[in-house]
Design a protein around this nucleic acid. Structure first.
Lengths: 111, 111
DNA sequence: ACAACATTCAACCAAGTAGTTGAATAAATG
DNA sequence: CATTTATTCAACTACTTGGTTGAATGTTGT
């Protein structure tokens, strides 16, 4: 039945933007402030702030306020959730496609 | 450097909608026509036709016209591409986070 | 030829996204 | 206290998305 899973929706759509993937990559090297994260990009600070918000909505990033600075930390948990889903689907699908292929071949021999 | 990869954009955004994930699931059980794919959903046939188009743009589905019917086939290739990306990131990130954790601990002892 | 079927195209709408600029808020610093 | 720094909020624009309905196109079956 594979219940609908809104967490996957948010995780995948967060991952669908190259800037957000780059931000995650950067955060894997250590926590960083909003300004630090924005620095390598051409886009405005505000644009990056919004991307961070999207990552927060997906729970891929956790914010901790230290005075006027916001420290962002990578949270791999939902990422692992999406990864698990993909792995299980990949296995299932590959198995089934292989089976269908075999059926098709024997069908061919019988026709 | 991790070059930007527009294929990942399309794959992840295709996967970000529950209806499209359900369509892929259904296609893993065998090829199907547009009408067949639409049947289990509340949404209109046109809506499903658009979802299929999105899956085609991401190359997750391949269309083969047989007379008036369009047969859709699951193409797991871009799915595997996204999976590979996720696996490599998950490993990398976990390794780095563990390292940062160790550094933090020794920092703590020294203070 | 005609009716039924499979699918898309076209136009539209509401909501969401990615970006901008400019102002507001709040904390640190000289 | 005034200024700079870090960040968000608000308003706006252009584009995309997910959905609808109705008409058009092409194919099959009688």
């Amino acid at each position: 039945m594979t219940a609908p899973n809104p967490r996957l929706d948010r995780t995948f759509s967060a991952l669908a933007h190259p800037t957000r993937r780059a931000i995650l990559q950067r955060l894997s090297e250590g926590d960083a402030r909003v300004t630090d994260l924005a620095e390598p990009f051409a886009a405005s600070l505000n644009a990056i702030s919004k991307h961070i918000l999207a990552l927060e909505r997906a729970n891929l990033v956790i914010r901790r306020k230290e005075g006027r600075e916001h420290m962002l930390r990578l949270n791999p948990e939902p990422f692992d959730g999406a990864l698990d889903w993909m792995v299980s689907r990949a296995e299932l699908w590959k198995r089934r496609l292989k089976l269908l292929d075999v059926l098709l071949q024997s069908d061919h021999r019988n026709s």
